[in-house]
Nucleic acid binder design. Structure first.
Lengths: 140, 140
DNA sequence: TGCTAAATGCAACGATGTTGCAAATATGAT
DNA sequence: ATCATATTTGCAACATCGTTGCATTTAGCA
């Protein structure tokens, strides 16, 4: 699906920043940080604009915010666009990359009465294959 | 178990800040943010000192950092001290509180070869019972 | 009591994220 | 194609989180 199409389906204006973000995400297939997106995008936008775009896209369920650490936040496309199943996120503490990991099932969590769950996030933190090879690298 | 005892077991100096953090955590039984801890503690310490204490305690496995959002970070005592089982964390988007929720099981996640997992964090985001009562409150 | 390694306070800094307001722009109606 | 307008953007300023370097203080041991 094309970026402009996704936006119009949600009655959102097809602005340069939104198109750029979505194009990049579709192309990359990975969760990306604001920083990574800003660096890779040819056209430049103010940081404020990026954050507002993320918020809008998130509110419409087009993208999701993945918080792996207080200073490590990534965004990824919704499953409906990528055709992925429910999955966990693996965060490599060495190279900072976030990867989607298929899981048999995200457990059904029973919360006390009157509690409402809007999001369930399963984050795995460790060392990816490439960084595991480099024996010397220490993880906090 | 007493704070000083916990620290000495790990060969850590019993400093005012560390004692204060642990005492407060043991007493409260809840995950607390740096801000909450600083406000509740009678003696005052520099923010740097808190962050350095958290880091040290975390590295020794005495406490754990729970990141629910980029600007919402809490710390909680290790299970070995609280005698709790493995659990998920419920984050109320309205009142910002973090609660431990028992889960049947955190799923065994199969990661690709050579990947190493150090931490598994299951975070549920929603509205707690008290905040659910207040119908008017909107969640982003 | 005194030594010393470790912990603290302070100042400065970097990154993430937000808000208010004026200028620019996407889009639907003409 | 042009216009009107609600929306989006850029800029400046700000808040919070978290880190680093360095001088001072302190916990714990001899």
């Amino acid at each position: 699906m094309e970026s402009a199409e996704i936006l119009s389906e949600h009655q959102l204006k097809a602005t340069g920043c939104r198109i750029g973000i979505l194009d990049l995400m579709i192309e990359s297939g990975n969760a990306l940080s604001e920083n990574e997106i800003r660096e890779k995008l040819e056209s430049s936008f103010d940081r404020t604009t990026f954050y507002r775009s993320f918020k809008t896209l998130d509110e419409h369920g087009i993208i999701h915010k993945i918080v792996v650490d207080s200073q490590v936040v990534k965004y990824e496309l919704d499953k409906s666009i990528t055709n992925r199943k429910q999955h966990a996120h693996f965060y490599c503490k060495v190279c900072d990359a976030v990867q989607c990991i298929d899981v048999a099932e995200i457990p059904e969590v029973v919360v006390p009465k009157h509690y409402k769950i809007y999001e369930v996030e399963l984050v795995l933190k460790g060392k990816c294959d490439k960084c595991s090879e480099m024996k010397s690298t220490r993880v906090q």
